[in-house]
């Protein structure tokens, strides 16, 4: 589904990612871990198409298409979803209006008829229940005045609404208490199928108690330096990252 080859990314002339390779297949869950400032969020932003980042070298292929040539909205319409580390507050745009616009445009791109108002509201209600999102959030502005936990639940809700093929969750667990973490993780698990894939970016092993990854990657200085299964996450939790740095030096 997703192939990243020798990716190099710069921000204002500073290289953040240098020579990253990654392959994600349908049905897989990948966890990307690593110390702060190693380029994890940059990778997520580049896949989503954030224009603040410049790809200087390498390629990203998504379902056989050159992803780097697609505009931001077309990547989303092709099934890429980014769960934001810091969801943006948008005063004056209601959640309902936001999701309706997004879903209409995605359906139009895929040659589907737009949902009727009734069907849309019914669909939205189902998805809200999935992430135990409170009803009242509907008419509120996007993320405005939401608590940290509500914002993250709202990301999972949007993911449920848009049914992406490839979801990238950027530190979705940060700032969550244990109950919110469980709800978010359950949401991700319920949405998982043999046709879609998830990349979970996290600092802590904690989230991986709930979302069981098929692969765990360690990112360091702009590259994936180690890949293992879920036991690697446990090892990192116990020993930290220093032993990997030592290994690299050796």
């Amino acid at each position: 589904m997703l192939q990243i080859k020798n990716l190099h990314v710069s921000v204002q002339g500073k290289e953040i990612i240098n020579g990253l390779n990654l392959e994600v297949k349908a049905g897989e869950i990948h966890a990307i871990m690593g110390p702060n400032g190693t380029g994890k969020s940059t990778l997520a932003s580049v896949i989503a198409g954030n224009t603040n980042y410049e790809v200087t070298q390498g390629e990203i292929t998504y379902n056989g298409k050159n992803l780097l040539e697609l505009p931001i909205e077309d990547r989303a319409r092709e099934g890429i979803f980014l769960g934001f580390q810091y969801p943006v507050e948008i005063p004056g745009v209601s959640m309902t209006n936001f999701m309706r616009t997004a879903l209409d445009e995605i359906r139009q791109y895929r040659g589907q008829e737009p949902l009727s108002a009734g069907a849309f509201l019914k669909y939205m209600k189902e998805k809200k229940e999935l992430v135990e999102l409170q009803d009242k959030l509907n008419n509120r502005s996007v993320n405005e005045g939401f608590s940290g936990g509500e914002k993250k639940k709202n990301e999972i809700f949007q993911m449920a609404m848009l049914e992406p093929q490839l979801a990238i969750l950027d530190e979705t667990d940060s700032g969550l208490d244990i109950d919110a973490l469980r709800i978010v993780a359950q949401g991700v698990n319920k949405l998982k199928s043999a046709d879609n894939a998830t990349i979970v970016i996290t600092h802590y092993q904690r989230l991986l108690d709930y979302i069981i990854p098929d692969f765990v990657h360690v990112m360091y200085e702009g590259r994936i330096v180690k890949t293992g299964d879920k036991s690697l996450a446990l090892e990192l939790e116990e020993k930290g990252y220093d032993w990997i740095k030592e290994e690299l030096k050796a």
Binding site: A48, R75, A76, F81, V88, I90, G92, Y109
Partner: peptide, 29 residues
């Protein structure tokens, strides 16, 4: 706000409509 535009566009909304949503929201008050 460019971060708001990116957020809306990442959900599949084209730039023109994303700008519209933000402008309509601004004048909504």
């Amino acid at each position: 706000k460019t971060n708001a535009l990116f957020y809306l566009m990442q959900r599949g909304i084209c730039e023109r409509n994303a700008r519209m949503l933000l402008m309509v929201a601004f004048v909504g008050q």
